[in-house]
Every structure is written in C-alpha cells, then in structure tokens.
Amino acid sequence: MITGLHHAQITIPTGAEAQGKAFYCEVLGLQEIDKPDALKGRGGFWLEVGHQEVHVGTEDGFDRLTTKAHLAYRVEDIHHWRERLEEKGVEILEAVPIPGCARFEFRDPFGNRVELIELL
C-alpha cells in the first residue's frame, strides 16, 4: 500500500549549491534540512516543504529547459508570490487556466520548471 509522498527530487548543476540555496531558501523561503551523514558527500541539499521534502541533487549534462517535468508548490496569496518573483527578476510564465485554481510558472536559475498554485 502506498501511503503518501515522502519526497521529490530535482537537480542542479554540480557545484551550484550556493546559488541553489540562495534561490530556494532566500527567494522562495524554503527551509533547508540536514541530509543523513551517509549522503552528505554526494552534493546537493534537502528542503522541507510542509510535511514533505524536496531533495536537490546534482547532475551535469542535462538541459533542464527541454522538459515539462516540474514541481508545483501550493501557496497562499498567489499575487504576493508573483510580485515577489518579479521583483527578483524572475520571468513569469502564464499557465493554462484550471478551474478552482490560480497559478503561474517560472524557471529556477538552472532551468527547472516550477509552478506555484493557489486553490481558490
């Protein structure tokens, strides 16, 4: 029986952890959590998102701009997030409307597609 989602993983280029933490922790306000000692030498970092985790690993030789794969973060006050990201110079990409939701997309500094969604 599957009982829930524990974590999802995205990747950034090797050696880009400082830039990744600046974006995900400072701009998006996500909390970094400790990785197990056995995994600390592999690069990347982990984030807490509500009761789930996002693992940010490292991977080279991959063009993140070529995929529709993404994480969608549920937010409150979608207008606040749009303004915050625009102030930081992040290009907002309009998403196809879905009934009962306000949403938009953007790319992180590494090309990963990200969606923010507010349930109305």
Rank of each mutant, 00 (worst) to 15 (best):
E115V: 06
E59F: 14
D34K: 13
L120S: 11
H79N: 14
L85K: 06
L120Y: 08
E91P: 01
T67E: 11
Q9Y: 02
K21H: 00
F23P: 00
G41V: 01
N112P: 13
K35N: 07
V75E: 03
R64W: 06
A16T: 09
E53M: 13
C101W: 12
E76R: 13
F104D: 00
K40W: 01
A16N: 11
G100A: 13
L71W: 03
P36L: 09
G61R: 14
V114I: 15
G43E: 02
H7D: 08
H79L: 12
I92P: 04
H7V: 07
V27F: 03
G20L: 01
F106P: 08
G29E: 04
G41Q: 05
H79S: 12
H7W: 08
H80A: 09
T67L: 09
Y24F: 06
E26A: 05
D37F: 04
V75W: 01
G44V: 07
K88M: 12
D60P: 05
D34E: 12
E76M: 05
V75A: 05
L65E: 15
K88N: 15
L47D: 02
G41M: 08
F45W: 06
Y24K: 03
G43W: 03
H70K: 13
H6K: 15
F23Q: 00
A95H: 04
Q19C: 05
E91C: 08
H70P: 04
V96D: 12
L116H: 01
I98R: 15
A16F: 08
V27D: 00
I33K: 10
F23A: 01
L5Q: 09
E48I: 07
G111V: 08
Q31I: 05
Q19V: 07
D60I: 10
E17L: 02
L28P: 00
A102M: 11
R74L: 09
P109L: 08
E32H: 02
G89L: 10
A95P: 07
T66S: 15
E91M: 13
D34Q: 10
